[in-house]
Design a protein around this nucleic acid. Structure first.
Ligand SMILES: [Mn+2]
Ligand SMILES: [Mn+2]
Ligand SMILES: [Zn+2]
Ligand SMILES: [Zn+2]
Lengths: 152, 152
DNA sequence: TGTAATGTTGTGAATGATTTTCAATACAAA
DNA sequence: TTTGTATTGAAAATCATTCACAACATTACA
């Protein structure tokens, strides 16, 4: 069994729940995708497989995956929650271009010491961190500049 | 005219729009509130005043305030977007307790040098930053510990 | 072995925040 | 005044997410 499945199984047992076939299928699909996804995209991906699972079950399973620490919320977009699996992934910063929608990621580790210091001062026990920067990517900066000079 | 109103007015002119009475009222209400708010809370606050404004107009005005740089999205909660005015406010980190819902804020300035370095490397032009930490506040850490020992 | 208890699922309906539609208004320029 | 454009409130529509519920599956245990 894959390590993520072991973790999910342990989590479920701990909660008195079981790693059923639908849950297993959703779990595997989540770890087969290496991009951010929303509930519907996850559902669509599963539909292609032999076993078909209802959208409601997908929605029901996501909170379990979050709670188990295997998945985290990513940048919400177009009115939908987006997620990404995080097992084995280093935490990262999201850089979203407001013009073309491109998403870049960079390391968050360098910020840890400062954040931990602040957490200590607050006596806060962090469990998840979300750092999103919105702006313009290198491709869109010149485009925006043109617009501005047009307006003049 | 208050400085925030000057800024909003300039922004609207730039877009070929006008600072109407409803917009002015919404703007003032936003700057009279010093907590995070959602669309409905803002609407409720306005209802108390002499001039009554429709919820649709509130929803229509919020994106303008965001775009003008006077308001930013804060931590989304309970399925609703939350906002806060930012004119004259230093950017800050949000620390949300997943148990009691308490929200704390700390300074973001100390993280700037590192973020700017990364932005340079990406050739990214940041326009807004959102840093949210979820976990347990000092009041709830002991409560959570009790739960865990109960379970054993 | 049968049966109760409990958790799980798919289906379809409900919920509710946000957006859209549309007819009426405001207001400024011609 | 006439005309054009932006703005508004009210009501309806949208649509992601949750809920209700009946049918199943699996285990506990008499
Ligand atoms: Mn990511
Ligand atoms: Mn804040
Ligand atoms: Zn871009
Ligand atoms: Zn707390």
């Amino acid at each position: 069994m894959e390590e993520y499945a072991v973790i999910f199984n342990q989590y479920l047992n701990h909660k008195g729940l079981k790693l059923t076939k639908p849950r297993r299928c959703i779990l595997d699909t989540v770890f087969s995708m290496h991009t951010h996804f929303n509930a519907e995209e996850l559902y669509d991906k599963i539909r292609g497989k032999t076993s078909s699972i209802s959208l409601a079950t997908v929605y029901r399973t996501i909170p379990l995956l979050l709670d188990a620490g295997l998945v985290q919320r990513a940048l919400r977009s177009e009115g939908r929650e987006r997620y990404e699996h995080i097992f084995g992934h280093p935490k990262h910063i999201h850089w979203l271009c407001r013009n073309c929608g491109d998403l870049m990621e960079t390391d968050l580790n360098t910020l840890y010491p400062i954040l931990e210091k602040q957490a200590q001062d607050l006596k806060f026990k962090p469990e998840s961190i979300e750092l999103n920067v919105k702006g313009l990517c290198w491709k869109c900066i010149p485009i925006e500049n043109e617009k501005q000079s047009d307006e003049k």
